Simulated scan of single mutants.
Amino acid sequence: MHIVIAGASGLIGTQLATTLRGAGHDVVTLVRRKPSSPTEVRWDPAAHLLDPLALAGADTVINLSGAGIGDRPWTSTRIKELLSSRLRATHTLVEAMGRLDEPPRTLISQSGADFYGDSGSAQLREDASPGSGILAQICVEWEAAAHRAPAGVRVVTTRSGIVLSRSGGSMGRLLPLLRLGVGGPLGNGRQYWPWITLPDICAAFEFLALSDIHGPVNVCAPQEADMNSLIAALASALHRPAYFRVPAPALRLVMGKMADELLLSGKRMEPAVLEAAGFQWQHPSLTQAAAWVAGR
């Protein structure tokens, strides 16, 4: 397949490009700097600039673009940037597709588990309603922008869980603390965190590109886990204690709204569509995932 990736410089995008090329696919990445190889094409989503020919002949476009959710404090300006960076990139891709006589057959556009907001212990399949909060609203608008793709384009919106990687990934600063033996759960630890390993999320994107699935897809492992279980499994695999629980008030004092939406909210998400389609996880259990993160 000929696949174009937007947002290929992040953790998922970098590994995804490598995975897809290793599987024999022809991969082009969209970059905002001067291209350094024939497999790169320059674009400027902030200015809605993309030559439609960059997408010509593509079987699938994968859209991972957007400012990092937890990279900076959530000022009002930053919150607007989180939304606008996603909408501008998606609109730019969709508009370029619309200017082609034969647009790409598939658009896989990233969303997130945050679509469901803080849902407590409710079981969340793809037909669940959106939740409330800043991130839920961002995901709703982000998905709607993807569905403006030209008629005939198969649109998949991937609601991804926490990505576990050996370098930390979505665990941010927590994994290095666990490696040092000074980490622990956040808040009461009973919040459900949908999770998936980096190899499995890349495999899921390839699976979706090759399938006929459309609409929302929960991208997470089949074994659910609350934060207490997740931290305990990682600490055990690393042979470290995890006694240093961080109270919710302390997180709110330091991080404000970001603490409630990123760290203390729960989503008991089920990958119903992937399971029904026969997707095979490399790390379906938390024990397997933790062992992989620990390098075992």
Rank of each mutant, 00 (worst) to 15 (best):
V219Y: 02
G169A: 08
A237I: 12
R173L: 09
A144Y: 05
C139N: 00
Y192T: 07
S132W: 03
A209E: 07
G184D: 02
R190N: 12
G131I: 01
A203F: 05
R159S: 05
S165F: 05
S211C: 12
G120V: 07
A235R: 08
V182M: 12
E126T: 12
A146Q: 10
I231H: 09
L175Q: 08
R179C: 12
R148S: 09
D127K: 07
A225S: 15
S229A: 15
V155K: 04
M171V: 01
G131S: 06
F205V: 08
N188K: 15
Q137D: 13
A145P: 07
V163N: 00
H147D: 04
L230M: 14
A146H: 09
D114G: 08
L175S: 10
I134F: 04
V217N: 00
L210Q: 15
P130A: 08
V182N: 12
P216D: 09
G131V: 01
L210Y: 06
S167N: 13
R179E: 13
G131F: 03
H239D: 13
I231W: 04
I196L: 11
T106C: 07
N228I: 09
L135D: 00
V153K: 11
I138S: 04
A136H: 03
T106M: 10
A144T: 12
D118Y: 03
P194L: 06
R125P: 04
L164I: 02
G133T: 00
I196E: 01
G112A: 05
F115C: 00
G172E: 05
I134Y: 02
S167D: 14
T197E: 02
P222S: 15
P194S: 11
S160C: 09
N218R: 13
S167A: 13
G112N: 00
A136V: 03
S121R: 14
L230W: 07
I108N: 02
